[in-house]
Amino acid sequence: MSHIVDTMFPPEAEDRGGAATPLLAVNGLVKHFKAKNAVVRAVDGVDFHVAKGETLGIVGESGCGKSTIARLIMQIIAPDSGTLLFDGEPVGSAALPLGDFRKKVQMVFQDSYASLNPRMTVEDTIAFGPRVHGLSHKAAVTRAHDLLHRVGLEPSRFAGRYPHEISGGQRQRINIARGLSLEPRLLILDEAVSALDKSVEAQVLNLLLDLKDEFGLTYIFISHDLNVVRFMSDRVMVMYLGKVAEIGSSEPIFKKPRHPYTEALLASMPSMDPDNRTQEAPITGDPPNPINPPPGCRFHTRCKFVSAICANAEPVLHDVGGGQSAACHLANPQSGHPRLAAAA
């Protein structure tokens, strides 16, 4: 695809900050939605970064804020506070105007049908973005055909079709092709494979891995399916009610979670062993409402290790080594949680 890079992004514009600068750094991100007589604390002070070339998985249950974060990064909605640095440049600054940023970050949504214009052909859908950003009609169509080919759809068969004429898995491939049409550096996948049948899901996951290598992409992969997140991600961020519960390298988190919520989430996955079924639910009740989140640690109302300190003091992310941090008093030896004293 080198001819396309030449026409749109001169190579020197890429990778300004060098390999050590995170591609995306998010600091103090807050988004509260005003409802009738209430405030939904959807995202309530979140910091994280995504390194170049890695996949950051975001997991959590409904209402934890994972999709709101995706929308905030995409600038679909404006944050109440917080900053975004893209390759070291503040988003929206003179160095990185919003229009330029939007070319570099693209998103694929869960509902493959709702996210396509039903009155545009597959070819027009993919060529639309590049045309808006200044490519000639002919060059944009060439690019659309090239991308169709890359996502495994024969352009001669699919370019002229409408979204309702193709299957869900194929539509999601179109959405991915459209996401890539502006040569982004960061692709946000918000439950992008969740609506697909299992046999098709595996194909799309493989495609995403191949495209990542081919185009040198960085992914933010949001999903409620922990198996899929584990398979895709280098690092994982676990969210609970608008806060980060735990973040770090994928394998340590899946092998030895340090936040009781992460542990419960992992233990809630159905067992695949008929002789060793789950006997007891790891936690009871539903996630509380983000309108009035519990004080202190937001998980304390469902946590089996709860003590007085958890309701009073909010734990901050504490580095537990191995690139893993957990926002739990038990992860911080200085927190004064009674279980730590008992264990010592």
């Binding site: 249950e61 409904s62 409620h224 809630s268 159905p270 007891e280 790891p282 539903d286």
Partner: peptide, 11 residues
């Protein structure tokens, strides 16, 4: 249902 709720309902 969410994962932590799904397992409760299955049980």
């Amino acid at each position: 249902l969410d994962a932590t709720v799904q397992i409760q309902v299955l049980l």
